[in-house]
Simulated scan of single mutants.
Amino acid sequence: MTAGDMGQGMMGGGPGGYGMRMMRLAAHPAVVPSGVTSLRVLNTGALTHEVIVLPLPPGQGIGERPTGPHGKIDEAGSLGEASRSCGAGTGDGIAPGATAWTTLTLPPGRYELVCNLPGHYMAGMYTELDVTGK
């Protein structure tokens, strides 16, 4: 998957100073079989990013989670994250040009992959990952 942004010149849009939909996450593939899944994230942008895996409740779409005053969503229920430059698991973020990864065991369902650095979710850094039965 890739994480990207429009670069350092982005302004406006609330906490974090990023305009709406100026950032993106893309999952390739967007549908995977249940079981052990490795997510590899390449940061193609100019800013630091991360990817957090959250289950999507029935009837909820991606990008619909409420954000708090610091431009972040509630991470309760997270199944894991890729946020360590050139490494697996949790860290201080994925530096521009770096890759991070995490390996999870995912049951069938819908998941929202998000960057939860301040303002990034509101700027469009989310995507859906669908996990099917084997």
Rank of each mutant, 00 (worst) to 15 (best):
V41T: 07
V41A: 02
L42T: 10
L42A: 13
T44D: 13
T44H: 12
T44G: 08
T44V: 04
A46N: 12
L47N: 09
T48W: 07
T48E: 12
T48C: 05
H49G: 03
H49T: 07
H49I: 05
H49M: 05
E50N: 04
V51P: 01
V51Q: 01
V51E: 02
I52M: 13
I52S: 08
V53C: 12
L54W: 12
P55C: 15
L56R: 10
G59N: 11
Q60H: 15
Q60D: 07
G61N: 08
G61M: 12
I62F: 01
I62H: 01
I62Q: 07
I62S: 13
G63L: 09
G63Y: 11
E64A: 13
R65E: 15
P66Y: 12
P66R: 09
P66K: 09
T67C: 11
T67W: 04
T67Q: 06
P69D: 13
P69A: 14
H70D: 14
K72G: 03
K72F: 02
I73Q: 08
D74L: 07
D74Y: 07
D74N: 14
E75W: 08
E75H: 05
E75S: 13
E81S: 00
E81W: 07
A82Q: 02
S83W: 02
R84M: 12
R84G: 03
S85V: 02
A88F: 13
G89W: 09
G91R: 00
G91C: 00
G91P: 03
D92V: 03
G93A: 06
G93D: 06
G93N: 06
I94H: 01
I94T: 11
A95L: 12
P96I: 04
G97I: 06
G97A: 05
A98E: 10
A98P: 07
A98H: 12
T99F: 00
T99H: 01
T99Y: 01
A100S: 15
A100N: 08
A100Q: 05
W101T: 03
T102A: 10
T102P: 01
L104N: 05
L104E: 08
